[in-house]
Design a protein around this nucleic acid. Sequence first.
DNA 1: TGGTACTAGTTGCTTTTGTAACTAACAAGG
DNA 2: CCTTGTTAGTTACAAAAGCAACTAGTACCA
Lengths: 154, 154
Amino acid sequence: MMENEEFDLRDFMPYLLNQAAERLSVDFQANYRGRYGMLRTEWRVLFHLGRYGAMTARALCDLAGIHKTKVSRAVAALEAKRFLTRAPQEEDRRHETLSLTRAGDAAYQELSAAAQTFDRKLMEAFSEEEQVILRNCLRRIAQLPKADGDDGMA
Amino acid sequence: MMENEEFDLRDFMPYLLNQAAERLSVDFQANYRGRYGMLRTEWRVLFHLGRYGAMTARALCDLAGIHKTKVSRAVAALEAKRFLTRAPQEEDRRHETLSLTRAGDAAYQELSAAAQTFDRKLMEAFSEEEQVILRNCLRRIAQLPKADGDDGMA
DNA sequence: TGGTACTAGTTGCTTTTGTAACTAACAAGG
DNA sequence: CCTTGTTAGTTACAAAAGCAACTAGTACCA
């Protein structure tokens, strides 16, 4: 045992990223779970629709990088909560335009504000330089091409 | 709609971290899933035991920040694969010392090497300064105290 | 000895996710 | 029309995770 002394698990990026991501996600959950009974995917769908406007489920999948079954279920849940409505497009009835209701948009506004506050507060702990580098590096990692060419979106 | 123009979801740290973490974890999975049929938690338990030596499940929970039910099931799975053995301690038979078998250690050695290669390759894309800041920031985020004082380990 | 309380670890049940198969709508060619 | 192929979205089933209740071993104290 105990070979590879120099390699600490705590320096392994996938592990470190997961720890950091879980740490923050669990904290922020309190906002959408407690007040609105939303799941993480529902919050993301809500956020995308609020931020980028009405779109189809397919566009949402592409934009947010969420699998279509997760989107499908999140949309159904948000619809049940009366936070969004669907409208099949006339030219092609396979496409459903998803739009937030007034209540959905209100929830988005509040959660979006909470998110900004959360982010600002978190970032107070970091210098300007650290913030820039951190966001930049994370974006680059998130945008890495998938290893096997499969985008998992089939 | 479309208020809060300045706040892009892509800059929200919990989201960004999750995206980056998922991206890397999915790639590295190929190593332990394909070759050893391991789950993520099993890999983490294996890694901790290989890296830090034999310990109890409880110590593993604390060290790795994994919930005891997940550890319990991962240990059972690794035992079934003959990668570790348990030995109740004589002074207190509630404590079981978990130790890797020869096969378990061999798997750890190989996966640990794969992890180092993975990490090195990933980090080639970043400057020395970026690497230092990135790891440092992530560690600080991962170590933030839990919001509600509950460590989720009960 | 018996009672209460605490810790280690497991198990049962429910919720959530992943995978793959499915339906429905369209498009193009024969 | 009718087949074949493709895309949007849903659903069924299986794998995994979360939570809470449980067993078992220990400690303390009356």
